[in-house]
């Protein structure tokens, strides 16, 4: 069971309570909440906030693909997964992503949750523009989604 959504921060808030409600089940004995927040330093620069950009349709497609892959890979029963990512400007300490996973056992929940966040980092079309104290804002470098060999 999957819930996947992009939260436009100008219209609504990302809320851990929604994750808790979605994954609650008496069939699961373990719940893991991963919450990504904006930190104040990156590459020795003082960060004041991050603007997240997203290709919404591709992001949801990517979340669904990652979830299905994880289901096949781990083959656990009775899993509930909640993934929400924000787009727009996020201040220091505020939440950018929530991944909540409920499984029968704790080892399953840890594995499933870790797989999802690592795959999102590798291939979900979300971009970050960091804002700094006293410096110009900058889009962060990321992973290309194309095979560079095809261009040679």
């Amino acid at each position: 069971m999957l819930h996947a959504k992009i939260i436009d921060i100008t219209k609504e808030k990302i809320d851990l309570n929604n994750a808790q409600k979605f994954i609650a089940s008496s069939k699961c004995g373990a719940s893991i909440y991963f919450v990504g927040t904006v930190r104040d330093q990156n590459n020795d620069k003082k960060v004041t906030g991050i603007t997240y950009d997203s290709h919404d349709a591709l992001v949801i497609k990517s979340f669904e693909e990652i979830y299905k892959e994880a289901e096949t890979k781990f083959n656990f029963n009775n899993i509930a997964v909640f993934i929400e990512h924000v787009k727009g400007y996020v201040k220091l300490g505020e939440t950018s992503i929530i991944i909540a996973v409920a499984c029968k056992h704790r080892s399953q929940a840890y594995e499933f949750s870790r797989y999802i966040i690592e795959e999102i980092k590798k291939r979900t079309p979300i971009w970050k523009k960091e804002h700094y104290e006293g410096e110009d804002s900058k889009w962060l470098k990321g992973n290309p989604l194309i095979d560079q060999n095809q261009l040679k």
Binding site: H55, H85, I120, W127, K128, G142, P144
Partner: peptide, 10 residues
């Protein structure tokens, strides 16, 4: 058509 630069969210 969308241009999809190298990605890095989360």
């Amino acid at each position: 058509i969308g241009i999809i630069p190298p990605i890095g969210g989360g």
